[in-house]
Amino acid sequence: MEDLILAILVGLALAAVRLKDLLAATAVLGAYSLMMAVLWAWMNALDVSFTEAAVGAGISTVLMLAAIVRVGRRESSRDRAPLFRTSLGTFRSRIKDEGGRAAHARGARFSAFAACALVAVGLLYGIPDMPPVGSHDAPALVHPDVAQRYLHKSPNREDGTLGEVGPANIITSVLGDYRGYDTMGETVVIFTAALCVVLLLRPAPRRRSKDGEGA
């Protein structure tokens, strides 16, 4: 099941990159987020799944649509020079007319490709060190002050034993209590994002000039 979901995710990601119609690409990204939510739910991470469905598939899709209305629906084809083009004909035409711009775009794309490849190699190198999904001896799970404490000490028990925090949903205890500072920081980040958009996009209020004429 996970393999099927992951295959769909890879397909959707490739489609989103290849599509030139940004509206279609946004719709594909919405579907991608929805599949991510399914994957999280499948892995029993219901809070993450919920957030992904509401934020990833919902609000960010709408925000991207709003951005498309401003920037236009079509991606510029000028900056989409293919990464490797080795045939002599295109090489000649590059020298002849497009010259600088195409070479520049190709150079930028090559460095972007190199950066992505470097990160990918690093990730692939690190993956074998990670414990398998759901492993019973994962470091975060066996550590007495991380998962063991959250799982066994935080909730109140039905027999009346008081836990350290109380709620049955341990995620809430972690987010609001054990890691309350982080959640406060996240809230401030959301506020800062909205503040930046206001500063950048909101038109300045019209000033009334002193002689009574509108500016």
Partner: peptide, 30 residues
């Protein structure tokens, strides 16, 4: 122990207030 309940409710309400108004601001400005 019960104070954890009230405290968590209060901060969650604060998160909700900021998230709702910030998301609406993002949408309406964009």
């Amino acid at each position: 122990n019960h104070m954890h309940h009230y405290g968590l409710m209060a901060i969650e309400a604060g998160v909700m207030i900021t998230v709702t108004s910030s998301m609406l601001t993002l949408f309406f400005e964009m």
